[in-house]
Design a protein around this nucleic acid. Structure first.
Length: 578
DNA sequence: GCCGTTTTCGGCCCGACTGTTTTCAGTCG
C-alpha cells in the first residue's frame, strides 16, 4: 500500500459520494483528506497501519479509521460497498470534459449510461440533449471529448513509458545471449507521446532472447511472436515490440527502427545517389554499381559518416533540415541534461505543491543544481491555493532567510524568489508592479478563460509578456497532452513579442505539458528568444521532469547557449535581471 | 466529515465561463 493508493481511494470515495448526492462538505472532507495524505511529511502509510494518526489536521475519526483499515488490510469495506452501487466503468465518465458529478449522475440515473460507450450512443440518439440541463451544445461538446479520447486511446505520455522502457532494457541487457540492446522508435526520437515502444537487440540466439522478452511478469498479452520479432502488451495497454538482429546488423537496424520514416527515406535516397541501397539490415552495393564495397558498420555514426554526414542525434531525425545541416557540418551541439545548472518555476506547499520550500531546496541540491526558482501560484488561482500579496512577501522573507543559511553554511546554492503570476483575462497581471518589483523573477501563465478567440488570447498574452516585471512566459499553449488541446493562440506572434521584449519562453517539462511545443523552438531560436527548461515541479520527485525537458529541448534544436538555466549561478542573475 | 469552539452544532473556499435558461446550475481552474 502506497501513499498514492491511500489518497486515490479517498478521492474515489469523494467522487462516489458526489454521485450519490451526499453532503458536499462531506465530499470535501474526503478530498482534503486525500490531499492531506499526499502532503504529509513522514511515513503516513506506516502510521496508518499501526493506527497512529492522531493529531493530523483533517484526519479525525472516520477518515483515520478508514486509512487504518486500508493500510493494515489492503482493503476498505466502506469503499467496496460504495463501489458496488455503481457500474465499474462509471469513473471513466469523469474523464469527459464538461461532465462533472451532477451530470454523470443525471445521465446514469435517467438513461442508465454506465460507460463512455453508452454515453456516446445516448448522445448520438439525442437522448442526452433531451435531458433537463443538457442541450445541443452540451451533446456536441461531450461527443468532441469522446472523439478526442478515442483518437488518443492508444497513445501514452512519456512519464507513462519511461519506467517500463528502463525496466525492459535492463532485463534485455542482463540476458546472457544479448550483446546489445537499445530502445528505438519515437521514444528514442523524443516525441512527446508515443503509440508503442520499439526495442532492438543484437544476438546470435534470437529465439532465446524473444522467449525471455515475452515471458516477463509485466507482459499481459503476447500479440505476436516469431523467430526474430515479437509484440506484447503491458498491463497499461502499452504495446512493446522487439526485433532481434545480428551484431553486424545492429547499427543499420537501430537507424532504421529509430526513424522517422521520412528521415529514413531521405537517407536511402542519399545512399542510392552514391550507388548503395540501405535497408533495415545493411548498406549494400546497388546492382551494377562500381562504388567501393561498403564496410560493416558498428555504430550509426560510422554509417552517417560513410554517407558524408555528421551523426544526427535521434531527436532531430524528423526530416526537417537535419540532413542538410549534417552534410554541411552545421548540426547544432544540442543541450544536455547535464548542462543544466538550476531551474525555475517550481511550487511548494505554500500553493498547490506537495513538498515544502526546504524540501524542494534540499532535493535541488541533491540533484547537483546551483539554484532553484520558486514560483508558486498567485491569488487568482484560488483552486491552487494561490498566494496573496501578504503570503507572497512572507515567502520572499523565508527564502531570504534560507539563502542566508546556505551562505552561512558555505553551501553554494540560491533560491530565487518568484511567482507564477496569473495572466488575467485582459492581459493584466495578478500582482501590482510594486509587488513584482520585490521578486527576483516572475513567470506569467494563463490558467483561466481559455476559450477566448485566437486574436483575444494572443493580445492577452502579448500584453503580459510585454510587462517589464515579467521574466518568462509559462506553458504557452495550456495544452495537457492526451487530455486537452492547446487553446487558440498565435504562437508565432507571441514569439515575436517575446523577441521584442526580451522575455524568456519556458519549456515546461511536466510530461503533461511539454509546452512550448518542440516544433516552435527553431523559430524562437532564430528570433533570439531564450528558453528556460522548467520542471513545474509540485513535488521533490518532479524535479526529475528536467529529463523530459532536456529531451524536448534537443528535439527543438536548442543548444546550451539557447537555454538560460545552463548558466551557472553568478551569470544567470544577469539574464533574469536580479 | 471536520473545525472551532459560543463544548453542540452551524459553517465549511472563489470567480469566470458555459449553456441552458430568462436567473442559475454545473464545471473548471
Amino acid at each position: 500500500m502506497t501513499r498514492e493508493a491511500l489518497a486515490d481511494t479517498l478521492e474515489q470515495i469523494a467522487l462516489l459520494l458526489e454521485l450519490k448526492g451526499e453532503n458536499p462538505f462531506k465530499v470535501r472532507a474526503y478530498k482534503t483528506g486525500a490531499e492531506t495524505v499526499l502532503q504529509f511529511t513522514g511515513d503516513i502509510v506506516g502510521r496508518a497501519r499501526v493506527n497512529d494518526l492522531s493529531g493530523i489536521k483533517g484526519l479525525v475519526d472516520a477518515l483515520r479509521q478508514k486509512l487504518h483499515e486500508l493500510a493494515s488490510t489492503g482493503k476498505l469495506e466502506y469503499y467496496e460497498n460504495l463501489k458496488s452501487e455503481f457500474p465499474a466503468d462509471i469513473f471513466d465518465l469523469f474523464q469527459i470534459q464538461g461532465l462533472g458529478p451532477k451530470k454523470v449522475k443525471a445521465v446514469y440515473e435517467a438513461l442508465g449510461v454506465a460507460s463512455v460507450t453508452d454515453l456516446k450512443e445516448a448522445c448520438q440518439s439525442g437522448a442526452v440533449a433531451a435531458l433537463p440541463g443538457f442541450g445541443k451544445k452540451s451533446t456536441e461538446k461531450i461527443l468532441q471529448s469522446i472523439a478526442f479520447r478515442e483518437q488518443n486511446a492508444d497513445r501514452f505520455r512519456l512519464d507513462e513509458v519511461v519506467g517500463p522502457v528502463e525496466l525492459i532494457l535492463e532485463s534485455l541487457r542482463s540476458h546472457p545471449d544479448c550483446s546489445m540492446a537499445e530502445v528505438a522508435g519515437s521514444f528514442r526520437r523524443g516525441k512527446e507521446t508515443v503509440h508503442d515502444v520499439d526495442f532492438l537487440v543484437a544476438t546470435s540466439q534470437p529465439e532465446s532472447v524473444i522467449d525471455h522478452f515475452v515471458n516477463q511478469e509485466w507482459v499481459s498479452q503476447i500479440i505476436a511472436r516469431g523467430d526474430t520479432k515479437a509484440s506484447v502488451n503491458l498491463q497499461s495497454g502499452l504495446q512493446c515490440d522487439l526485433r532481434a538482429v545480428s551484431t553486424d546488423e545492429f547499427a543499420c537496424s537501430l537507424l532504421y527502427f529509430t526513424g522517422s520514416k521520412e528521415h529514413n527515406v531521405a537517407l536511402r535516397g542519399r545512399a542510392n545517389d552514391r550507388g548503395y541501397t540501405l535497408n533495415e539490415y545493411r548498406l549494400s552495393l546497388q546492382e551494377g554499381s562500381d562504388s567501393a564495397d561498403p564496410p560493416v558498420f558498428e555504430t550509426e555514426t560510422e554509417l552517417y559518416h560513410f554517407l558524408g554526414l555528421g551523426f544526427v542525434p535521434p531527436e532531430l531525425r524528423e526530416n526537417s533540415g537535419e540532413l542538410e545541416a549534417a552534410e554541411k557540418g552545421n548540426l547544432p551541439r544540442l543541450v544536455e541534461l547535464e548542462n543544466l545548472r538550476g531551474t525555475f518555476h517550481n511550487h511548494t506547499t505554500a500553493s498547490d505543491g506537495r513538498s515544502s520550500l526546504e524540501e524542494m531546496a534540499e532535493a535541488a541540491i541533491e540533484l547537483g543544481l546551483q539554484y532553484l526558482g520558486i514560483a508558486d501560484h498567485s491569488k487568482s488561482s484560488f483552486q491552487a491555493n494561490g498566494l496573496n500579496e501578504k503570503r507572497l512577501l512572507a515567502q520572499v522573507k523565508e527564502i531570504e532567510k534560507l539563502n542566508r543559511k546556505f551562505a552561512d553554511e558555505g553551501t553554494s546554492f540560491k533560491i530565487f524568489a518568484g511567482s507564477e503570476v496569473d495572466i488575467l483575462k485582459d492581459g493584466s497581471l495578478d500582482f501590482s508592479d510594486e509587488i513584482l518589483d520585490q521578486l527576483d523573477y516572475a513567470v506569467a501563465s494563463v490558467h483561466n478563460a481559455m476559450t477566448l478567440s485566437e486574436a483575444d488570447m494572443t493580445r492577452r498574452i502579448i500584453r503580459a509578456v510585454s510587462h517589464p516585471g515579467i521574466t518568462m512566459l509559462g506553458h504557452l499553449t495550456g495544452r495537457l497532452l492526451l487530455k486537452r488541446n492547446a487553446y487558440a493562440v498565435d504562437v508565432a506572434a507571441v514569439i515575436d513579442a517575446c523577441a521584442a521584449t526580451g522575455t524568456i519562453i519556458e519549456l515546461n517539462c511536466s510530461p503533461w505539458r511539454l509546452d512550448m511545443d518542440w516544433r516552435w523552438w527553431p523559430l524562437a531560436k532564430e528570433k533570439g528568444v531564450k528558453c528556460s527548461i522548467n520542471p513545474d515541479a509540485h513535488h521533490v520527485d518532479q524535479l526529475k521532469n528536467l529529463w523530459f525537458g532536456a529531451k524536448l529541448a534537443r528535439k527543438g534544436w536548442l543548444t546550451r547557449e539557447d537555454v538560460i538555466n545552463t548558466l551557472p549561478l553568478g551569470e544567470v542573475e544577469g539574464v533574469i535581471g536580479v
